[in-house]
Nucleic acid binder design. Structure first.
Lengths: 205, 205, 205, 205
DNA sequence: TATGAATGAGTTTTCATTCAT
DNA sequence: GATGAATGAAAACTCATTCAT
């Protein structure tokens, strides 16, 4: 009982995992408002009550889903950004990761959750709390990049990190709302150009 | 019983205006999710059905409310930013306007609407469409500021304008979610400092 | 519009009255546990949501139903007992009223409500509060009967009144539970006999 | 991990006994409505399904719980009342036993069960059936007390026994509902006084 | 014996909207 | 213009019970 065999990416998976997966897909395809217990259960092909059996509350499931996608992506970000040396490389990497976020549905889900959590007073703080690691991650990268640069005095890394996350979020939201991703792409491209201009101002490495 | 006299110094206000005002207050104080027809009617002291009589749909009322607050604020922004000459002055002015947005409830309402509109597929595009004038306004200011500066080549004003609006939105959302405005303040302050650094790079005027 | 014509006991009746009536019948025939919003609506032939439109809460409807039947019966009790002079007459009257309670369903409903209210923490105190008038009514009758009797010193009317109401309730409950009314009848009969024995001990009139 | 050792001074206790005990505590502390399979299992620290394995039905468990507490108390009543000789002594003893009922939670459980059984049509008759031994016990005591007294003709012991049990029940219910026990105490006290008055009318022993 | 997982039917309540007046 | 009443659909969640192991 329970020799774990790595199976095709679809298969067995614990029930909890199946539920989280169904919630993810539902958030991605039906949006936060469409992510009712019924909708998730329908998509996952299981009984509504199973959600409550395993998670107690819809909110809990939704947070578990956020945790899952957030942890997955954070892993990718840490690996990739760490490997990028110059500012330019970092910007290229960030662009690539953003595109991954987009394809994986991570962006959709984050947008829906952030937005949806406004409507549920008990969800809001939990969701924000889960943004904190991202701010800290950004802060680390920024601190490193800024070290020795001429901006070191002018820029508070934590504040800029907050701005970066807020910008990411705002871009997601607007792109998501009218389903137009071209502006996000332009933005990354522009960042690349500006990064080039500013490169000399950083200590470089 | 009850001949209607125009009360107080406020002008009589058409019924539609009264409804929009009630919707604004409800959005501000109860959030998007709390802004049901009932809640608006209760706050405004009129009958639920009146909303549907005048606006046909809750969505329509909500959009009218967004139009109203957006137009009000746009007026203020145009006036004030136009009068600010240097980059530094413009940043100071923007900071002041942001604080006004905060006090007036405009920020709360925008956040709630953006977030809420995710939940209503037919509302989303309409809301984004109403962000467009802001992007254009920002574009104008940026173009003017950039004129003759060393960034003129690197920066696409429209793209940066989009980024500015997205950032404003993201900051609103995060600040609103955990009710902490200090980070937005830090951000404006940092913008001031950076603006100072960069000032020489602009042609100035 | 709205000349009130007394119609057959079934007819027009305001919607609120119709709902209360449906709730009464449901309590009587399906018991407290069976008195769900759905069941009431089914019986009354109206939409579930109407209950909430008019009463806000199932609890409120249930209390309104209790108020209605309680007020009806209290009227009858006051009239009839007031008219009975001797202790014996009072006991005969009480017997007759009890039989009316039985036929009208008042007893069933009271039993169901008292019992059911144990299960709903917010209903319990409200229901007990509605028993208070009955205790006070009994107290009045007892005080009057006892006046000048040899028991005047031994008996606290309020305590005895409480006991009488409790006894009535207990008898209801047990009779209701196994649907056997013969013991209640025997009890009234015995009360008559004992009343006869004790009559000389009262000041009589 | 965890060889089961009989803990503490209590005997090992069969699983059935543990379940009954958990049900008793749950009824006492959470009331009938709160006594779901889940709640009982949680309190007892065992699996929900165990209840159904051992008792087949929640109703059955609840009845077993009633049987247990009823048998326990009946033992105490028989012992104590048998030892009391005069009417006055019997009343004192009954008062004492009532207080025990109160402390042990027996009263709470009886009230909750009687009340709750109304809600479950198949439970009601079973619960009433379990009141029968108490009526018979009361009948025995009454018959004995009445023997040779001047009331012997007027009072049917079985009917009075029914009344006594009904009164006990009604008092329980009302006291339980608004959590006020003072009236029950007053009642016992009044019974003592009246008993004193009537003592000469009994043959005494 | 015991259990974790699963289920179908049920609950109260809220909502946007419609309609007759 | 305005309103009180009405409705159908949906929401989150709970429950007693079953079943495979």
């Amino acid at each position: 009982m329970s020799q774990r065999v790595p199976q095709s990416s679809e298969s067995p998976a614990s029930t909890k995992e199946r539920i989280v997966e169904a919630a993810f897909q539902t958030l991605k395809e039906e949006g936060f408002a469409g992510t009712s217990a019924r909708a998730i259960a329908r998509r996952g092909g299981f009984n509504q009550a199973l959600i409550f059996y395993h998670f107690g509350t819809l909110n809990e499931l939704v947070l578990a889903t956020l945790d899952k996608t957030s942890a997955d992506r954070m892993g990718r970000y840490r690996d990739s950004i760490g490997r990028a040396i110059t500012v330019d490389e970092k910007i290229q990497t960030a662009t690539r990761l953003y595109r991954e976020d987009l394809e994986s549905g991570h962006i959709t889900v984050i947008s829906e959750l952030i937005a949806g959590s406004l409507a549920r007073p008990d969800l809001g703080p939990e969701v924000v709390a889960r943004m904190q690691p991202w701010i800290e991650f950004a802060e680390g990268v920024i601190t490193e990049v800024l070290a020795g640069s001429s901006f070191e005095g002018a820029i508070n890394p934590r504040t800029l990190a907050f701005a970066v996350v807020a910008l990411y979020l705002g871009v997601d939201l607007l792109s998501h709302l009218d389903n137009d991703n071209s502006r996000a792409e332009s933005l990354f491209q522009m960042a690349g150009t500006i990064g080039g201009y500013l490169e000399p101002m950083f200590g470089g490495d």
